[in-house]
Design a protein around this nucleic acid. Sequence first.
DNA 1: TGCCAGGCGGGGT
DNA 2: ACCCCGCATGGC
Length: 314
Amino acid sequence: MLRRCSSLTIDFNKYGIDLMLTLGTYNFNFWFDGHVGYVQLSAEPLVIAEVYTDGSVNIWGESCDKGYIPPLINALGLKEDLGEFFDIASKDPLLKGFSECCRGWRLRSSSLWWSLVVGICQQNASFRQGWGMLFKLIKNFRKYVRIGNRLIPLLPLPKDVIRYENLLRSSGLGYRSETVINVAKAFIRGDLSDDLPMRLSLKELEYVLMNIKGVGHYTARLAIALSSRRYELPPIDRWLRALASLAYGISEREVEGYWVSRWGRWSALAAIATTIALDAEPLRRALRRIREGLITPMVTDKPSPTNMWRFKEL
DNA sequence: TGCCAGGCGGGGT
DNA sequence: ACCCCGCATGGC
């Protein structure tokens, strides 16, 4: 049970933010319904922002400390100026379409812990499978909080997944369960903490994360991007490597160096945006989309990054 | 029904 | 620095 700590209205247009896109991309049915979104700002103590697409915001918390504004700004990228990113994107063979449809998009950031879980679930799996795992994981842990007359599912914490390890397996994570456990133990030990992204350089952070068995370059860099709003290190996987090789006309081994020279401090954001632009379709189909110039998100009846919030099951 | 999918680590060379 | 393989699971 939470108390409403504060109500405010934010002029998201002033910041160039499209809330429908920002809340609706890579989100689940139980956190966004097309009208209102729930964004967890802190786990302990629990603080949740209830964000309506018209810009009104309620802050709900166990206790009403005043410190919720910086996390809110951070979670929604309120002060993030993506002008330079979209300038590069507007001339880019992969993201030209994205720069036209999606200027108001901002990445919703999440805690380092949850960002790692997200990354792990994308390993060696299709987009659909990975997000299906996360969906089931959240539901299986059955942690809810009541806001108004809604029950909002909460993220499991490191201590939860260690206590109920079996729920990872039954969420379909397969051998990835082991990696999630390793990460959870690192948080319990104190080797990892959610404030690490602010304290360490990105290279240091990457090094620390990669010390965990099951976390490699891809997962570490995706987690860094999702949790720190710093995007210098691109998570480049087989999928993006092949797509960039085709779009830029370079060999796969040249992709990472070229990607960074092209996108600079926006490298990881560009990688994530590419998945949105191509609806995270499996490689074959994504390659075909590039050849056919279909590089903006499409309206489909299948789950995609921009429409998956509409699905009650994944 | 096999085979593949936004990786990874451990084993080779 | 490379290359190669097995790996739990779910979807097709």
